[in-house]
């Protein structure tokens, strides 16, 4: 569903952003990408969304080349970033309506929007409240509602729990599990080793643009992920 083959990005200042990344995230799977700042996690997401162009390799969303035909590929992927404040002067309903329409859906009823906001756990009294009064956690719930309304087979999440309190982060992950159970392929970048272990079906460790290791569910049960991660990082002599 989400796949990359030898995907490589070198920035203008010759910094290696991504080095021959090859991976596949299957439907009904959550792939968590761990890595320090600048490791290439966000670069990977940006390449899938065609925000930047690779120097070589391919990125596919639902079998569509995201580099050659980005607009078509974007029909099948929903994205949520870390810093999504959304439009503060708009209510949760208005924000949801706007981004749902951008996603290509028309004639969505208010009831559907309300149901979706209910599903992400936003209290009913906040549906018609302007977002400038929302906490980060509440905004992130609206963000997830936007993702859910787009209803795509692939989901890209860029550190979506950063800055959320433990309860908020846990709620978020619970909702993510629901999406996985619906058969969606989720690629999530994160710094949070424990949450990656908790939610990820597979966890990748990335360093200096290279996907150095991928651990599956069994590996994760057997290994101490924190130890593996830190040792791996130390082994490379950086960070």
């Amino acid at each position: 569903m989400i796949s990359a083959d030898q995907l490589t990005k070198v920035y203008e200042d010759d910094v290696m952003g991504l080095d021959h990344l090859t991976l596949e995230v299957k439907p009904g799977e959550i792939f968590c990408m761990l890595g320090a700042n600048g490791a290439g996690k966000t670069t990977t997401i940006n390449l899938f969304l065609n925000f930047i162009e690779p120097i070589s390799g391919t990125a596919f969303i639902n079998g569509i080349d995201a580099v050659k035909d980005p607009l078509e590929a974007k029909k099948y992927v929903a994205y949520l970033g870390e810093v999504v404040q959304l439009y503060g002067n708009f209510t949760a309903m208005q924000n949801l309506d706007f981004f749902t329409k951008l996603g290509g859906k028309k004639d969505v009823s208010k009831k559907e929007y309300r149901d979706c906001l209910r599903k992400v756990g936003l209290p009913e009294r906040f549906f018609d409240t302007k977002l400038k009064k929302f906490s980060k956690g509440m905004r992130q719930r609206v963000g997830l509602a936007i993702v859910m309304m787009k209803d795509t087979p692939a989901i890209l999440l860029d550190e979506p729990t950063a800055g959320l309190d433990p309860r908020g982060a846990q709620d978020f992950l619970d909702m993510l599990r629901v999406l996985r159970d619906q058969g969606k392929a989720v690629f999530m970048s994160t710094h949070d080793i424990f949450r990656a272990k908790d939610i990820g079906d597979r966890v990748g460790i990335m360093k200096q643009g290279v996907l150095a290791m991928v651990l599956d569910k069994e590996d994760l049960e057997e290994e101490d992920l924190e130890k593996v991660y830190l040792e791996y990082m130390r082994g490379w002599g950086v960070d």
Binding site: L49, F51, L71, E72, K74, K75, V77, A78, Y79, L80, G81, E82, V83, V84, Q85, L86, Y87, G88, F99, L102, G103, G104, G143, I146, K150, L156
Partner: peptide, 15 residues
């Protein structure tokens, strides 16, 4: 861009 809505907007199939 500062609100994060630009990347959210451009993650949709909008030229």
């Amino acid at each position: 861009r500062e609100l994060g809505t630009l990347s959210l907007t451009l993650s949709n199939p909008v030229p």
